[in-house]
Every structure is written in structure tokens, then in C-alpha cells.
Amino acid sequence: MMQRKSMLSYLNKPSRSAYFFVAPSILLLLVFNITPLLASFGLSVSDASITLNQISFVGLDNFTRAFSDARFLNSLRVTLVFSLLEVPLQAFGAMVIGALMVKNNLWNKALRAVFFLPVICSATVIGIMWRMILHSNVGIITYAFSLLGFGKINFMNSAQTTIFVVSFLSIWRSFGISAIIYVTAAQQVSPSLYEAAELDGAGAVRQFFHVTVPSIRSTFWFVLMTRFAGSLQIFDIIYVTTGGGPNFTTESTVTYVYSRAFSSGGDMGYASAMSMVLFVFIMLVTILMYRRMIREG
């Protein structure tokens, strides 16, 4: 009884009871984020088989190996190219589309739903669907292009163009979520700003550039940051559509990490080392963008 009383009085201070309320979140973070991260770091300095039954410490050997592995370096390049294609197009494109769907009328609501549909579809379904649609011989879009006189375009099997196709698929899939975020942000902009701009003779385009864009800058940085982090981890769409081909021109870092860990070799130590390299890169990019977002906010 005494113990319970002293416990209650201890927790009575707001600063202390706060710990009590955040404890579940901290516990979940520890179990599902911090522990796997530490385990991954442990594996990255080990020679570990897929079943982890043989583990030996190898120091930084896996990291040295990674930076002399042409396929890993190629995967970093592919990931970067993919991100540079996907992120700006998505961040700016979604902003424009979002600005066109700000008003809460029926038409805009329907459009938002249409844009959001791919977000709730599984990557596997999307991948298989697009693989068929863009198939070099039986794809409907390929056929349509050939009718328009473009010849037979091999969208999914060209070492020069497939990376662009995969980037497009990724944009198509996650575009809706970015657009909805922009819509929500734009709806928070005070109508008086638009009224004032209108009185000053600004048309819709000028209102977009001089009122909407400056008002949702922090949202823009948020979208940029989350999309960049997401695109650097791209896996599912590539795995389902091209498997990293043709000739590794779409093999992202995570796809390569997966193949090292599970498809062939079962080299968990090496796969973890490559994951750590990617993790550090994503963390640095995220920190830089986060700081910018806070400044803008």
C-alpha cells in the first residue's frame, strides 16, 4: 500500500508521468528499431551465413569488399539516378496537381481518390500489371505506341531506357500520397492571402507561385525528405518488374542487398554491411533535409 502510494506520488509530477506515457513507444522503438539496427551493425562486421549458425568477426572486411565490388557501386549509382529522377518529378509534379485539387468539390474529391488508388495497391500487383501493359510484344501501351508510328518500343528490356520506366512506375504508385499531403497543406493557407493577391491583380498562376508555394515550403521539404529516403530504399517495384535487369541497369542497392542475403550466397554479413552503408547515406541526407525543413517551418 505504501509502495503504491509512493509510486503514485513519484509519478504525480508531469515531467515524470510523461515517461510513463511514452514508455510503450520507447519499448516498441527499442524492440523493433534500435535492436535490429544494432544487430545489423553486429552482422556487418561478421562473416555470417543465412541461418546465422556460423558467425565470425571480420572487422571492416565486409565494408572494404563492398567498396571494391563493382556491382555494389553500380547499385549505388542506379539508386542515385533513380532517386534523382523520381524525387524531383514527384515533389514538383504532385505540388502542381495538388494545387489544382485544393477546392473540396465533388470533381476534386473524385480525382484525389483516383490518384490515391495506386497507393493502396500492392507493389506486386502493380508490377505484374505494368509488366504486361508494357510488354515488348503483347503490351497494350507498346501496341498503342506502334500504332502511333513510334515502332516497337522495348520499355522493360532496354539498358538505356528501363530505369526511366521503373522511375515512372514508382512515381505513378506513390504520387497520390504526395498530392494529398500538398492538398492538405494548401488548404491551410489563409484565404485572405489569395483575396489580397487577387485584389492586386494576380491570376491563378501568379497566386500559385507567390502565395501557395511560399506558404507550403515546409511541406515541400517534408515531401522531398520522405520521398528521398523512400526512393533510396527502392526495392519492391524493381524486384517485381525487372529484377534489376537488363544487365543490372535497374539493380538498386536494396535489390542487390536482398540478392546477396537471400537469393544467392546467403551472405548475411556482407548484405548487412551494404545495408549499413546505405543507412548512413540515407541518414545524412535526411538530417540535412530535416534541418532545412525546420528552418523553412
Partner: peptide, 15 residues
């Protein structure tokens, strides 16, 4: 021979 990663749909389409 087509430059293809998956020719099964073409086989099924009689191509």
C-alpha cells in the same frame, strides 16, 4: 529471338 525477360505471354499469344 526477342530481347525479353519473359516470353511466356508471347508463347501464349501465338508469337
Amino acid at each position: 529471338n526477342p530481347v525479353e525477360a519473359d516470353t511466356d505471354p508471347m508463347m501464349m499469344a501465338g508469337q
